[in-house]
């Protein structure tokens, strides 16, 4: 490729990404603007008067609690996903059990189901088990998003590990479970982290489960809090955008740290 073409492509690429991600930029800078600046007829692309009042406002309005709830729900769901999915994926990759293909099919199909289908029955079931208005409703249901995805990604990964590794370990007297914990899990660490991160994102973004199973505001995650705030804040866009910025921050931080692995993992999980 000629030098000039290389330059042109890089610049074109950067310009495209800047335009494409403009909404994210707009969200963040609006959070620092004053109300009057937002309603000016000519938009400002950098806050004239850089202020933090919106962030102070929203933290007075329980955002700290919502943030903690989001972390609890997404964190617990992620742990649950990994505890269930990692051994299952390993078993489906290595063992020749009966009904293996139907089980893989089950995970493929459950990934495609709409949440609305399970919402009403689970509302009734959770009501009977007194699980409404606890963390467990959203935690259990959010985990159903991550489990199939992780099983499918990790199974593909485990299929690629040479069997000799486990055979060596079993000669050393390790049982199947010990081999799994001591040998397989450590070498699969990067893939497991990717599945964890993606499950975390799925749960972090959930609105419908928390909103349905928890009427108690003290248990709401950021998404439910922000949905509720839309009505109350009206057109106080700076406060709403501050709220949105706080909600997106952890996702962006995790994404920056894991970018390369995440992109790879997403591709292998969706195609295979």
């Amino acid at each position: 490729m000629s030098r000039r073409k290389e330059w042109a492509l890089n610049i074109l690429g950067i310009v495209f990404v800047l335009i494409f991600l403009f909404p994210v930029y707009w969200m963040i800078i609006t959070a620092f603007k004053s109300q009057s600046e937002i309603f000016q007829s000519t938009p400002t692309f950098w806050p004239k008067d850089f202020q933090l009042t919106s962030f102070i406002d929203i933290f007075k309005d329980n955002v700290g609690q919502y943030f903690l709830n989001s972390f609890m729900i997404a964190g617990l769901a992620t742990i649950l996903v990994l505890v269930l999915a990692v051994p299952s994926a390993y078993g489906l990759a290595r063992f020749n059990v009966r009904g293996k293909n139907p089980m893989i099919l089950l995970f493929l199909v459950t990934q495609m189901l709409p949440a609305t289908v399970i919402l009403t029955p689970l509302f009734i079931v959770f009501n009977n088990f007194h699980l409404l208005n606890t963390y467990w409703g959203p935690v259990l249901t959010c985990a159903t998003l991550g489990v199939p995805f992780s099983v499918l990604i990790l199974r593909t990964f485990f299929l690629g590990i040479p069997k000799e590794l486990e055979e060596a370990a079993s000669i050393d007297g390790c049982g199947r479970f010990k081999t799994f914990i001591r040998v397989i899990v450590p070498i699969s660490y990067p893939s497991i982290v990717v599945c964890g991160a993606i499950s975390f994102f799925f749960s972090w973004g959930d609105l419908i489960f928390s909103m349905t199973f928890n009427r108690n505001q003290d248990l709401w995650p950021l998404t439910a809090g922000i949905y509720n705030a839309i009505g109350r804040y009206g057109i106080e866009w700076n406060d709403l955008m501050a709220f949105a910025t706080v909600s997106v921050l952890p996702v962006i931080v995790i994404f920056i740290i894991l970018q390369k692995q995440l992109v790879k993992g997403l591709v292998s999980g969706s195609i295979k």
Binding site: L9, N10, V17, L21, V24, F201, S247, I252, F255, L266
Partner: peptide
């Protein structure tokens, strides 16, 4: 295959990762 291609392609993923509630509000 220009220099920044795979980096830029990755960065774009942000729009997919933002919770839909936030995207909707935005």
């Amino acid at each position: 295959k220009f220099r920044l291609a795979s980096f830029l392609r990755g960065v774009v993923m942000i729009s997919w990762l933002i919770p839909l509630t936030i995207t909707a509000l935005l």
